[in-house]
Amino acid sequence: MSNLDIILQQLANGLILGSFYSLVALGYTMVYGIIKLLNFAHGDIYMVGAFIGFSILSVVSGILGDGWTGIVATMALSMIAVGFIGVIIQRIAYRPMLQAPRLSILITALAVSLILYNLVMSITDGEFKAFTVGLGYEGISMGEVYITFTQMVLVSATAVLMTILHLFINKTMYGKAMRAISIDQDACRLMGIDVNRVIAVTFFVGSALAAAAGVMAGVYYGSIHFFMGFVIGLKAFTAAVMGGIGSIPGAMLGGLILGLLESFGTQIPFIGSEWKDVFAFGILILLLVFKPTGLLGRTEIERM
């Protein structure tokens, strides 16, 4: 392969990876923006999304087939189901803790993450599940670079979801309320905004996006497992920090940049794919040292 081919191929890989990171990072950043909680369980929500998608697909593919119609229906249903799971988690575990010390709510989030992880592990007996879809491997080739239609559709689907989210945040009443709460929660309460309801909606949207990413990852990689959420949770957090935590365009940008950095990073001599994760965490640590506000984040004056 020529150098140009390698660059193009890695560009395609990076964009796909980046789409997943962006979708998960959005959930982190939205929740952080609104209640300043680092939701450790978010990576596991993504994993739960993949498994719920797997269960729904096994039913839906009987009716609509395992082509794109079936997958789109699966994705929509999973997003709704996981969105409600997110709301339930928020209601049970996080809402009572909102006034508690920061450390307590962090540990609560960690507990939720462990519960989801171990629950899915027990249910699936720790096995890999094959995500069988009938999409084939057709695509277009440019020289030695080969891009499947699946890859293209997944990246476009991410773009569509992000556009919808953008419109939701900027054009609807809930979006406006979310932005207002992230600035001053008490003032919002005084203005008659139902803060708890808006927080629940935020969790719904964030979890639904993670579920979309989970189903897409299942379609793309072909198999899912209970520990798939751990590393992506960390990386999506890196992406959210990279873009500036609390900033929605930042999370989208951060995810794409991290995906590209990672796929090009594995091409650097002496950094094999086994060091891929170290590469991403290294970036996170350097970033926090030199630019903790991220690319698009606001400068934080308040500190904990």
């Binding site: 680092l38 960390l234 890196t238 920090v241 965490f281 290294g282 926090l288 934080e300």
Partner: peptide, 30 residues
């Protein structure tokens, strides 16, 4: 690990330590 991150918000420390834990394990493995 602590030097640079302790100046930041405490929840950043949580995630950095998580990342550091993984780095040490992966390094030990490779």
């Amino acid at each position: 690990i602590g030097g640079p991150t302790l100046r930041l918000r405490s929840d950043y420390l949580a995630i950095v330590t998580l990342g550091f834990g993984e780095i040490v394990r992966i390094a030990a493995r490779n």
